[in-house]
Design a protein around this nucleic acid. Structure first.
Length: 564
RNA sequence: CGGAGCGUAGUUCAGUUGGCUAGAACGCUCGCUUUGGGAGCGAGAGGUCGCUAGUUCGAGUCUAGUCGCUCCGACCA
């Protein structure tokens, strides 16, 4: 490709609002342009990278035994109604209507569609298992799309769905996909962690994220120092140590408390005790029926809403309570008690951390009094108990042997066990088993965000001059720069080099512009980030100068000796 | 969805109490010069002032609505 024919060119500066390196560089180098927030054009250079990623994904998926197919972009809304996902999760599905009034969802994922096509066949255990996938447009009506390719409203995802007779058979495919994903991300040049995570709105029992460690990542996860434990923040567990095991249990007392003591910081100052010695109450409300939940937890810990929702079996349904909600149960913000409210329907939840402290402070705070020497189990006890605490950096790992370290990562892919979550909700999602009985499919799904993967590669592979594409996904293998092309002798050599390389099957971007300073051409070349730079100029004589992007040394060699 | 802010040239911005033909810099085009790390000089093109309605003799400027964008939060593969 001649640069003079290429649509899309480099610009010197990023736009003002761009914050992420990948966003800036892909814009400056002419790979992407924004349409509206969260929707992007892929320009020819960007498309080439994208297509290479797609090809790698397809090769590995096909090798894994999965089969590519395609589903419509518009999903009949009835399918989403079958699984209740047209309303769940507080996430509004994008919908469109045709002129006869039929409603369709612009899917953010396609479980229902794949179940729907599969149930059209009278499948038996002999037809199983199988895994089908597509490269499909996905729409997510993000309330706030953040600049850059990392979180967008419209994107292409590789989404795969596998169908099995039972859990045991599924587990083999889950491992197969885990290995396949590992090969895919390794081939595109990414290092990643496989992180057990929360499956939230997808249903199912477990899932893993493929996270590429990065400061700009939105996924937070924990790794133990000894490397034996890894988990997403949403599900991360940790070992609670007893705070004051030596202390004697004292009688509970109501004591005077200065009125200025309201927050945890005030408490710490007033009693000169660490945060872990106080009781903390956090209030949530069921979005659907308005029921109030009060979670009592050790003062130094925070409530993990995901764990709480799971414990209560209310996934995706809890909101933080508002001040009005708290007043509605006869309490007031900042003075929520750990017991009482008998006149109002309130459900109390106790975090396991309450069992690690003797003689708590707090629990029934009034304007001027509070209780001290409160002991869980003796002075109050909640019906529901469990681990609902958020892990924090430095906490002890679950096995007690090591400390947790916090990491941030970009979630480039995920694999989900769906179990019979969808096949139970959707009618006729069954096969005939060897015993002659109809049984629901056992399913898994597996996604890779392709645009996000491309941005992530830039995020982890660049320098202050531009992108450094890994060979496997670079838009071209060679960036041929012709300097001083006004000189016909050099022009001829450059043209011959272009012809030679192209005929050898090398993918070449040829900077054939005249009247451009060498400095500009070098700067553009660094910005675009093609692996090999080949220069033809009056200095290179009968040879060419070659240089690998990201390395310092260059050398002049015969073109015929050049190997990509 | 809650809070805050912004829409004027490709970009970043200026534009007075409402007042003549709406400006600058960078970028872009052309010419000359220069030619191994974004060089210099000169000339030029480029605007429905987001959109709609209103107030006014007169609106980039005031009012209302609307659309879009940014930031913080909530939400979120």
């Amino acid at each position: 490709m001649r640069y003079t024919n290429l649509f899309g060119k480099t610009v010197r500066e990023p736009l003002k609002d761009m914050t992420q390196v990948s966003h800036k560089l892909l814009y400056q180098a002419g790979f992407i342009r924004e349409s509206t927030a969260g929707r992007y054009y892929l320009l020819p250079l960007g498309q080439r990278v994208f297509d290479k990623i797609v090809r790698i994904v397809e090769e590995e998926m096909d090798k894994s035994g999965a089969q590519k197919m395609s589903a419509p972009i518009l999903h009949p809304i009835e399918l989403w109604e079958e699984t209740n996902r047209d309303k769940s999760g507080g996430y509004e599905l994008m919908t469109v209507q045709d002129r006869r009034g039929a409603r369709f969802a612009l899917g953010g994922t396609a479980e229902e569609m794949f179940v729907d096509v599969v149930r059209r066949f009278q499948l038996t255990y002999k037809d199983m298992p199988f895994n089908v996938y597509q490269m499909g447009y996905k729409f997510r009506d993000e309330l706030r799309a953040r600049g850059g390719l990392m979180r967008v409203r419209e994107f292409i995802m590789k989404d795969a769905y596998s169908f099995h007779t039972d859990d045991q058979d599924f587990k083999k495919e889950y491992e197969n996909m885990r290995d396949t994903y590992s090969r895919i991300f390794t081939r595109v040049g990414l290092k990643f962690d496989i992180v057990p995570a929360d499956n939230g709105y997808f249903g199912g029992e477990y899932c893993h994220e493929f996270d590429v460690e990065s400061e700009v990542g939105e996924s937070k996860y924990f790794v133990s120092e000894d490397g034996s434990y890894i988990a997403h923040e949403d599900v991360a567990e940790f070992k609670l140590e007893d705070v004051n095991p030596e202390e004697e249990i004292k009688d509970m007392e109501i004591v005077e408390q200065p009125e200025w003591v309201r927050t945890m910081e005030d408490n710490i100052k007033n009693y000169n005790l660490p945060a872990e010695r106080f009781l903390k109450n956090v209030v949530y409300k069921n979005r659907v029926d308005g029921h109030i939940y009060i979670v009592t937890i050790r003062g130094d810990l925070q409530v993990n809403k995901n764990k709480l929702e799971k414990l209560l079996n209310l996934v995706g349904l809890l909101d933080d309570a508002t001040d009005e909600d708290i007043i509605s149960i006869g309490s007031k913000p900042g003075w929520v008690h750990s017991w009482g409210y008998g006149d109002h329907k309130v459900t109390f939840v106790a975090d396991n951390s309450l069992k690690t402290v003797k003689n708590f402070v707090g629990g029934q705070k009034e304007e001027k009094t509070d209780s001290i020497n409160v002991n869980y189990g003796r002075d109050f006890k909640h019906e529901i108990e469990g681990d609902v605490a958020l892990a924090q950096s430095g906490f002890t790992s679950p096995d007690g042997k090591s400390k947790l370290i916090e990491k941030k990562g970009i979630e480039v892919g995920n694999i989900f066990q769906l179990g019979q979550h969808y096949s139970k909700k959707m009618r006729d999602a069954v096969f005939v088993d060897s015993d002659g009985k109809s049984k629901e499919f056992f399913m898994g799904c597996y996604g890779i965000g392709l645009g996000r993967t491309m941005a992530t590669i830039v995020e982890v592979s660049h320098d202050d001059k531009g992108i450094i594409w890994p060979d496997a996904v670079a838009p071209y293998q060679v960036h041929l720069l012709g300097l001083n092309l006004e000189d016909s002798e050099i022009r001829n050599k450059a043209e011959q080099a272009y012809k030679y390389l192209t005929e050898k099957g090398v993918e070449v971007l040829y900077d054939d512009r005249e009247g451009i300073n060498p400095g500009s051409k070098f700067a553009d070349s660094d910005l675009i980030g093609i692996p090999w730079r080949v220069v033809v100029s009056k200095r290179t004589g009968d040879g060419v100068e070659i240089k690998k992007r990201g390395e310092e040394k260059s050398e002049i060699i015969e073109l015929a000796e050049f190997q990509v």
